[in-house]
Nucleic acid binder design. Structure first.
Lengths: 239, 239
DNA sequence: TTATCGTGCTCTGCATGCAATTGATGCCAA
DNA sequence: TTGGCATCAATTGCATGCAGAGCACGATAA
């Protein structure tokens, strides 16, 4: 036998992963996926970084098994690149990919807006209006970070109003990568002003139940955002 | 020590999974995912069936670890429903879900067709023309199964011509579930005739580089297909 | 007879061990 | 010096062991 038997039960969680037990999360693989998503999006794990299973599992305080499951999920989302018999890497975000990404998001949001135009409830419209005025307040106050967060909630709400699960899931899957691009390319003030105005127009179209209009405006809005981000990425490139 | 040590290396593959070593597949989890996808789509694993890890791992000749990874992937695709601490089940395909599914596919293919209209190469157009005549031949000969397969290849090719990876991946992810619906609701002859004509019109629009037209025609085509399938599902319901 | 609790079994979830692949390093030969 | 090859160390991929959650079934009491 082994006299120095280490305990086989779940190890004491050592680092990271602190206030993670808030909601009844499903399993360690799920928690790990969420945690890693955050770390990748906020740049703690930079693009191209090698994700060595052993190191990560120690850092997250879990074993390799759930970690590997999490990495597979992130690979599906395109955040991680899986190479056979090699350490997975944090996916690079090339300019081409950003273009494609925002094309795809524009396509999905256009369709969602068209559906939402007929399916949105008065309560949801009311909430959108509230979001819009909050958004304008953040804009007026120059509060960039809350603006971004709220902006994201608005887009997600519009997609949710389409009442189409596959569309919503596809949208969510693309969100993390778009967020990476957003964080790396700080918006210009001019683009910010434009963006608020575009949101106003989108809301108006939804209120008018103008499906084609809402779809076109939202798709254009996302397209403009993508273009602006691409320009921002081309500049100095602050990591 | 253990005198009756069973070999710990990979076990002899016992059942299923025979001619699987054709292309250099990545790993067992990938092979398992593909195999399970097939089994679910063709109805061998019927909707609602419990997927007990031990049983499946024996049937596929692999251990539970790669199997679990495969199940997670299929869950992302919506083919499998994962419940905490319970056996995963093959996802049911409710009529609502079919409606949403084809709405989403129509949205993606519309966007893809619009992009493809300007990006498709002459060689790809030529190949589409060849597919179209082959399609008409299958139609004339009443060969349903080859027709379906070719139909799928045509849609996939159009999406590929959009040169947008996220859109293509989203499309692929929805494909398996759509295929399930197709197999359960045998197309009517009338719908079949219509469908061939619609394909002709889509090809013409792409040849004319008419983005809006191609998008609209393709989206309508997918929408019609969805409606027809839904009607088919409502009928007798042959498993 | 029926509601409630207990008991046992099955199955998932996670941790860990073992083998094989891969990239790196250094050696040898040209 | 440089190209090619063997060896080594690092790391993934897979199999399996172990603990706990959940369900079924039965016993017991009202």
């Amino acid at each position: 036998m082994d006299p120095v038997r280490r305990p086989r039960g779940r190890p004491r969680k050592p680092v990271l992963l602190e206030a993670a037990a808030l909601r009844p999360r499903r399993g360690l693989h799920d928690q790990a996926a969420e945690r890693l998503r955050t770390l990748i999006v906020d740049g703690t794990l930079p693009a191209g970084a090698a994700l060595v299973e052993t190191e990560l599992s120690v850092a997250l305080g879990i074993s390799r098994t759930p970690l590997r499951e999490a990495l597979k999920l992130l690979a599906v989302e395109g955040l991680v690149e899986l190479r056979p018999n090699r350490s997975p890497r944090v996916a690079e975000l090339r300019p081409d990919a950003v273009t494609e990404l925002f094309e795809a998001i524009a396509a999905i949001e256009r369709a969602a807006a068209e559906l939402a135009a007929s399916r949105i409830t008065p309560a949801e419209l009311e909430r959108l209006r509230a979001y819009q005025s909050e958004l304008e307040a953040h804009h007026a106050a120059g509060e960039l970070s809350p603006y971004f967060a709220l902006n994201q909630r608005i887009h997600a709400l519009i997609v949710a109003c389409a009442r189409n699960t596959p569309l919503r899931e596809a949208h969510e899957a693309l969100h993390a990568r778009a967020e990476i691009a957003r964080r790396r390319a700080l918006d210009s003030r001019a683009r910010w002003d434009e963006s608020v105005a575009e949101h106003r127009a989108i809301l108006a179209a939804l209120e008018a139940r103008d499906a084609a209009g809402a779809g076109r405006l939202l798709a254009d809005h996302v397209g403009h955002t993508g273009t602006a981000l691409l320009a921002g990425l081309a500049r100095p490139d602050a990591a």
